[in-house]
Design a protein around this nucleic acid. Structure first.
Length: 497
DNA sequence: GATATGACTTAGAAGCTCCCAT
DNA sequence: ATGGGAGCTTCTAAGTCATATC
């Protein structure tokens, strides 16, 4: 990890050294007393050499390793569930290493210890083929619990959390049906929470304002977290006074709320939104006589909120609003952005833009790729030379035409035709490159994958593809097509979320 | 009602592969 | 043939939410 930014962080170094010292012999402990005096070059070089060696292996050797890996997947990557052979999502036990928590995690750098068979619980059918532990070892427990989906579990030593080996979910359909159910009652729920802004009871007002944020801004529920055990991040219910600023007027708009907080994975949420006057007044009320570190919604938590939602609709929870709003946004954006006249590349750009609108709503961000500027510049060079080429070809068409005017023969007529075709082709190529550049630029810090995989009802995308004659492969890769096979089967061009 | 635990979903980063330009 | 990078896969952390326990 020497090349990683983690190793420059005090907390990381402190935790690592503390844990490392616990592993040392008495003698080592007396000699090795300061991390900053340690020189890891030798072992670092050793691993670099190993990597280099791997890279320089012959084609045959690489192929051999590939086959070996494949046979491991074949042997361990599948299970028999209710008589079906199913692919296991993660079939390898997590190896030991240094804990890489996100953001300012107080436990970053701690030693994540090796998991032994003695730590592992196996969950399988009674009387089935019980997997054998490695020689000389035994499992912690063999269990036959058919109420859960996991095959194997162990408790990790950093946070004491249970880790699982399980399949890749696939309860997607239910999730999207739940979100569609919300569509039927959302108007009622909205007018209800607007009424509740006026409630005599503070807890009801807080619940109503929080729900408004969850609905309007697609915020996460925001469970309480144990202080000091994890990075300091929040969601809606756990917002603190310090996370919002109220502006009666800002940028020419009234009743502005400025959000600034770290959400899941310590991704910053920054947004300025104009809210209804009643919401604004309520927020002022909630913040009265409070310190920056106090809870904004002191009479509310996720349990209370979800209990309320449950009463409004069977199975409704806070996260359903995210799914609902994401899918509705995609559908509406696709409708708005797709131009029937557009060619394929432009249609796909529109799709990506609709996808992007959702990613922005859900605040799905990524670090700008390290090579972004360079690859952008490369693309620009390509565009410039393609433009040159278009101009050149255009001149060639002109002169071919002139030539034909003089000669009036079959050969020169054909030459005009050929040049014209060539021009068409290069213009198309140029257009494609320009679209690619636009897409890339707009996507610099936005991650589309998360919403595509977890929030967007795939039937909307499939229907859009069918409606505009776009091959599904342009929108979903192989894995995604497998995951969404049910939707590809089911959705027709007229599907409405 | 508060708190802990467990199971499952969602998340961005890291790693890997394969394809294209040179 | 090669090297770089886009796109895909893997990895595992970090959420949500239901249920058990105090």
């Amino acid at each position: 990890m020497l090349d990683h930014e983690y190793t420059t962080k005090d907390v990381f170094r402190k935790n690592f050294f503390k844990n490392w010292r616990k592993e040392m012999t008495h003698e080592e402990r007396t000699v090795i007393t300061s991390l900053s005096k340690c020189n890891f070059n030798e072992i670092n070089e050793y691993f670099k050499t190993k990597t280099e060696e791997r890279k320089n292996m012959s084609k045959e050797e690489k192929l051999k390793i590939k086959h070996e890996n494949e046979s491991v997947v074949k042997a361990y990557g599948f299970c028999l569930m209710d008589g079906h052979r199913e692919k296991i999502g993660n079939f390898k036990i997590e190896p030991p290493g240094l804990f890489r928590g996100r953001g300012d995690h107080p436990k970053q750098g701690m030693l994540k210890r090796r998991v032994q068979p003695e730590d592992v619980i196996i969950n399988c059918s009674k009387g089935g083929n019980i997997p054998q532990p490695p020689a000389g070892h035994r499992w912690k427990e063999i269990r036959h619990d058919n109420k859960v989906t996991w095959l194997c579990s162990w408790t990790e030593n950093i946070q004491g959390q249970v880790k699982y080996i399980m399949l890749n979910g696939e309860k997607d359909w239910q999730k999207y049906e739940m979100a569609r159910n919300l569509k039927g009652v959302v108007d009622k729920i909205r007018s209800q929470y607007r009424e509740d802004w006026k409630s005599k009871e503070m807890r009801i007002r807080q619940r109503a304002v929080a729900l408004y944020f969850i609905d309007k801004l697609a915020l996460r529920a925001g469970n309480e977290k144990e202080e000091g055990e994890t990075a300091d991040t929040v969601g809606c219910c756990s917002l603190r006074v310090e996370h919002i600023k109220l502006h009666p007027e800002l940028d020419g708009q009234e009743f502005m709320v400025e959000f600034d907080f770290l959400g899941k994975d310590s991704i910053r949420y920054y947004n300025k939104v104009s809210v209804e006057k009643r919401v604004f007044k309520n927020l002022q009320l909630f913040m009265e006589n409070k310190q920056p570190g106090d809870d904004l919604f002191d009479r509310l938590n996720t349990a209370i909120l979800n209990k309320h939602l449950q009463e409004l609709m069977d199975g409704l929870t806070a996260k359903v609003f995210r799914t609902y709003n994401a899918s509705v946004t995609l559908q509406q954006q696709l409708k708005e952005l797709t131009n029937p006249e557009d060619n394929m590349a432009a249609k796909i750009l529109s799709y990506n833009r609709a996808n992007r609108a959702v990613a922005i709503l859900c605040n799905h961000q990524r670090a700008a790729p390290k090579t972004f500027e360079k690859s952008m510049a490369n693309l620009q060079t390509k565009i410039d030379s393609k433009r040159e080429q278009v101009l050149l070809t255009r001149r060639e068409v002109k002169s071919a035409k002139a030539d034909y005017k003089v000669r009036r023969d079959e050969k020169s007529r054909k030459a005009v035709e050929t040049k014209r075709k060539a021009l068409e082709r290069t213009e198309e190529q140029l257009m494609k490159l320009e679209v690619q550049a636009t897409d890339k630029e707009e996507n610099k810090q936005i991650a589309l994958g998360t919403s595509k995989l977890n929030y967007l009802d795939p039937r909307i995308s499939v229907a859009w593809c069918k409606k505009w004659g776009v091959p599904v492969e342009k929108v979903y890769n192989k894995t995604q097509r497998d995951k969404f096979a049910w939707a590809i089967d089911m959705a027709e061009a007229d599907y409405e979320f």
